[in-house]
Design a protein around this nucleic acid. Structure first.
Length: 765
DNA sequence: TTCGGAACCCTTTTT
DNA sequence: GGGTTCCGAA
């Protein structure tokens, strides 16, 4: 292929990035700047023009989706030779390496990969063994400390050193947990996600000759989303990249939003000092969004200090102004969003709703389904979390890896076969005493009289079955077939039917069928569909193959999940102080900067139209919060915004005064600022001093119920209607003004004390 | 063994 | 507020 063809259709900067083929290269790729395109072209260029063998290239990504897309597009450009290239996630690449050499560290080639759930189970066991109080040592605290340590490349021994002189003696116990946890994983021939990276680096450090062979093999290294790399990934990259330093990293410091997962923005910021001969290329032309959206986003991110500095531009038309909706509460915010979607000419699939926290999704789900608008929620792949699915996967893991005791433990009495707590404890005690694996203990049942009665027989029967399935696996039986045989062998469907109500039994059986189906689908794409390969796929590639249907639905997701995606029309909701940016980020400037980047990521997902919204009052975790609009909103110049009412009408051209109420003080300040550049802080502020009755009126007119023009006066005996609780009668009034609370007896929902300021009440007389 | 109610949790979660 | 998890009672 001619060089000209390879760079055809690229802009000059992109072209430069593709042609810079050797030495360290940092590509700062702004949102929507054609990053993937550049990487793909670059790979094609290396292979076809520079004569680099595909097997000499490794491209590392964070998500399977990114890897898959890259692989597919490279294949389209250069054909099937792409097969021999490593284009995969950090974790997959490491798993691949560890399967080959893990025995050097004491793991078999068939090690299990433990999910969070299994991690938790293991930790709980350790907490119990050490007699730690779960309140002082919560599982998720321990797992996050351990995960963090691994991300930093800190071994249990290192960690013990670290906390040796720590003032808090608790940490020394944590170090003990970490040590035992790693031992536990080893005993089970299992690795967790963090281990995959950690052990690969350990492997290379301990076996220089091995590292050397990989260095020789991978003469070109590409890393996607470099801003998200953590310490251990950084070290891995550093190890592989020496001494040739043909390292191309692509990323955007402004989109670094995973520091809480150990990502270090310094990796991308310091690239030029890490590799002094590095070349830096900025992709700043955006092909995605309208000029207005881009300008607004640029302004938000410009307030950050710790950044490389980039100014995205576009030749796209300026498009609509960014809409702003200041809602009374989240129900109001929801009805605005739903109304905009339902009255739009766009298809549902063109919309996305982004929120900061998952807890915000519920109300939008309800609102959309009430209007029969199809939607999909991205997040929480629940399928592999179902008990019956995990049961079957545990069976498969036991068949695959006989040292996986945790999985074996899970299935001992599933379906129930009379193996109770006592039998299990006896087994475990015996295993401990004789330093045997759980499986080996099971095998000794034949000769040793360690358990009596029915439990003994059924366990012997189970062991027989497992041995038989292992034989089937070795014969080359397909995983789907094997799984079906297991289901039949243990009478799983019948057991589910017997132990659940008909409806639940039905769904559970459907889940089994879906699992079998998923395995078959996976097999269809594999050359060699082995059980081991399938289990790795399940562990590392939480495949949501339900993507196609999602195309035609409104997409709901957290902003974190939205990174890398784009939609024609985007609703970024809940832009409130305390929520976004979150309260926890207040004291730490670097966390605030990350929240800001998150906002930037959300905004830059929109192609045509961006809506921002904030609630004055929000109920979250059972508490009512009185919020001010997010500081991020205040950074957007007024001329890029238009304030809408819930019908999408522009409320007040230019000025962003709240429509209802508005104290004289605020109004006068706003109009005074009008001649100059209006002070957005004041203009966007919700009125704090609005009278309680007026607020209630504003909320009411925002709600679905009828209009009331004048502020009603609630007295004992007044009939009211609440948006949620329905009709009721006021039994008493406590306090006055903003603090007024109404004691209301509802017809259907009992007696409640509601704040007049907050409750969405309709006054009936 | 299964249920129901109390107790607990609560940003974000690429792998 | 809502969901999950855990423990005790039947």
């Amino acid at each position: 292929m001619e060089v000209e063809n390879l760079v055809a259709g690229l802009n000059p900067v992109q072209r430069e990035a593709v042609l810079a083929s050797s030495g360290p290269l940092l590509i700062l790729a702004g949102a929507g700047s054609g990053k993937t395109r550049v990487i793909v072209h670059k790979i094609a260029y290396l292979i076809t023009a520079q004569g680099v063998a595909p097997r000499q290239i490794i491209a590392l990504t964070f998500t399977n989706k990114a890897a898959q897309e890259m692989r597919e597009r490279v294949r389209e450009m250069i054909g099937p030779v792409a097969q021999s290239m490593w284009i995969s996630t950090f974790h997959s690449s490491c798993a691949r390496i560890l399967r080959l050499h893990g025995e050097l560290l004491g793991f078999s080639a068939k090690f299990s990969i433990y999910s969070d759930r299994e991690q938790t189970a293991l930790l709980k066991e350790i907490i119990r063994k050490l007699n730690l109080t779960p309140t002082m040592f919560p599982v998720n605290y321990l797992s996050s400390v351990i995960e963090d340590a691994k991300n930093r490349g800190v071994s249990p021994e290192d960690y013990a050193q670290e906390v040796h002189h720590a003032p808090n003696p608790k940490l020394r116990l944590v170090a003990e947990v970490y040590k035992l946890y790693q031992q536990g994983l080893k005993d089970n021939d299992a690795l967790d996600f963090g281990d995959l990276l950690f052990h690969t680096v350990a492997l290379f450090n301990r076996h220089p000759e091995l590292l050397e062979s990989y260095r020789e093999r991978f003469s070109y290294i590409l890393v996607d989303e470099y801003q998200d790399t953590n310490e251990i990934q950084y070290r891995l990259i550093g190890l592989l990249a020496e001494p040739r330093r043909n390292l191309c990293v692509v990323g955007d410091d402004d989109q670094s939003i995973y520091s809480w997962r150990g990502a270090q923005i310094k990796n991308i910021l310091d690239f030029e000092s890490d590799y002094s001969e590095a070349k830096v290329i900025r992709l700043e032309e955006n092909y995605r969004s309208t000029a207005t959206i881009l300008k607004a986003a640029n302004r938000v991110i410009a307030a950050n200090k710790r950044r490389k500095g980039k100014d995205l531009w576009t030749s796209n038309h300026s498009g609509d102004k960014v809409s702003l909706y200041l809602a009374a509460n989240e129900a109001d915010e929801c009805s605005y969003v739903v109304k905009r979607i339902s009255t739009s000419v766009r298809e549902p699939g063109e919309f996305a709703i982004f929120y900061r926290t998952n807890a915000q999704s519920r109300i939008f789900e309800e609102g959309l389904s009430r209007r029969a608008i199809p939607y999909t929620i991205v997040g929480g792949t629940k399928f592999y979390d179902r008990a019956e699915v995990r049961d079957l996967l545990a069976y498969l893991k036991v068949v695959n890896n006989e040292r996986d005791g945790l999985s074996l433990l899970r299935i001992l009495n599933i379906p129930t076969r009379g193996v109770g707590k006592t039998s299990v404890e006896q087994l475990q005690a015996y295993a401990e005493e004789h330093d045997l694996s759980l499986w080996d203990t099971l095998e000794r049942l034949q000769s040793e009289a360690l358990i009596r009665g029915g439990a003994r027989n059924s366990l012997i029967g189970l062991a027989d079955m497992i041995r038989q399935w292992r034989r089937r696996d070795q014969e080359g039986c397909r995983p789907s077939r094997l799984c079906a045989e297991i289901v039949a062998g243990i009478g799983f469907a019948e057991w589910l039917l017997k132990n659940n109500d008909p409806v639940q039994a039905q769904t559970r059986q459907e889940n089994i069928a879906e699992l079998l189906n998923a395995i078959e689908l996976w097999e269809d794409e594999q050359e060699k569909p082995t059980l081991a390969a399938y289990l790795e796929n399940v562990a590392l590639i939480n495949d949501d193959h339900l993507d196609e249907a999602a195309q035609s639905r409104v997409t709901l997701m957290t902003i974190h999940r939205a990174k890398g995606l784009e939609f024609n029309e985007v609703f970024l909701v809940g832009l409130e102080e305390g929520l976004f940016p979150g309260k926890r980020s207040y004291e730490k400037p670097e966390l605030l900067e990350e929240e800001r980047r998150l906002c930037y990521v959300g905004m830059t997902r929109a192609r045509q139209k961006l809506h921002l919204s904030a609630c004055r009052v929000r109920r979250l975790y059972g508490q009512t919060m009185d919020n001010r609009p997010s500081r991020f909103l205040l950074d957007i110049p007024l001329e890029l915004l238009k304030r809408e009412d819930r019908n999408g009408k522009v409320h007040d051209s230019g000025r962003l005064l709240p429509a209802v109420g508005g104290s004289a003080r605020i109004r006068s300040q706003a109009s005074a600022g009008q001649t100059e550049r209006p002070a957005p802080v004041r203009n966007l502020n919700f009125e704090k001093r609005k009278s309680a009755a007026k607020t209630a009126a504003a909320a009411r007119s925002a709600g679905a119920a009828g209009e009331v023009d004048k502020a009603p006066s609630f007295v004992s005996g007044s009939r009211v209607e609440h948006s949620v609780f329905g009709p009721g009668v006021v039994a008493g009034v406590k306090g006055s003004g903003d603090n007024a609370k109404l004691d209301i007896i509802f017809r259907d929902r009992g007696r409640k004390l509601l704040s007049l300021k907050i409750a969405t009440l309709k006054f009936l007389g």
